[in-house]
Design a protein around this nucleic acid. Structure first.
Lengths: 142, 142
DNA sequence: CTGTATCCCGATAGATACTG
DNA sequence: CAGTATCTATCGGGATACAG
């Protein structure tokens, strides 16, 4: 503890440095969301569902470039658990399962869309910034 | 390849299923951004810099809850490489280095802020959705 | 103070095979 | 079709020690 002194009388000299300025809850709440947003596929899946409406497993599998069956399953489970999408299984043969954003998931739409928009808008800048940086530092682009 | 036939004459029956509906560039551009957003710390660092202005390494280290020195360094390098923040080293002793959002980084501010806002707004819903899901499936809350 | 260099472990993710 | 099971490889990330 800083600010303590032998006589015990003194001071809180530091105004308790706020843990995470501007981030409510010290960033803990944000961190949780980030942990969900932070995985490789969630945002992509949400974005595709937001753009396309309800989709079945197989179609989703085609539309998410490069995802494995396993990761798609896991991602969908996570998002379902968090209440961002709903899973509807139809008792048919062959089986049919549809995934759809819940209202909560829908409420993320504008943010995800904005992110996608930002990505396309500034792609060139990022690209050139990287080349510039790699040039200055002699790093491999790979 | 589907649609090929022994006589070689036939058909593109499928209208080439668009790889990633609603996502420009087939999602490839978005994926790149997501790979940056997708790591554990980048968004948090950007958000803190956006809220606080230029900060030096040590202060940043305090403000990002739980980050290690190593990961902070790596995160800052990545963001610098992508042109989202600038690094300014002052030739002093002891050394002083300040990190600040570039205009490109600033342009992400509103999105990051929106994400943080969304997180706090819907924290309860996510929380209860998880409990509900865990209850239905008998999973451990872990 | 601001990093870099190692070591190490657990989570993440891919491939493959199998099931209802 | 829509998953589950299993195995493995890779990588993120923490701890620690050291350097400029």
């Amino acid at each position: 503890m800083s600010g303590t002194h032998t006589d015990g009388t003194s001071l809180p000299p530091e105004p308790v440095p706020h843990p995470c300025a501007g981030w409510p809850g010290g960033g803990r709440t944000v961190r949780r969301t980030l942990d969900r947003v932070g995985d490789k596929w969630s945002v992509l899946v949400i974005g595709i569902l937001a753009a396309s409406g309800p989709l079945r497993f197989g179609v989703l599998h085609q539309r998410v470039p490069g995802i494995s069956q396993r990761m798609l399953t896991l991602t969908l489970r996570h998002l379902e658990r968090d209440g961002l999408l709903s899973r509807t299984a139809y008792a048919e043969v062959p089986p049919r399962v549809e995934y759809e954003l819940t209202p909560l998931g829908e409420s993320l739409r504008s943010i995800v869309t904005a992110l996608a928009q930002w990505a396309t808008d500034h792609d060139d800048e990022i690209e050139s910034a990287r080349r510039d940086f790699d040039g200055r530092t002699g790093a491999q682009p790979g």
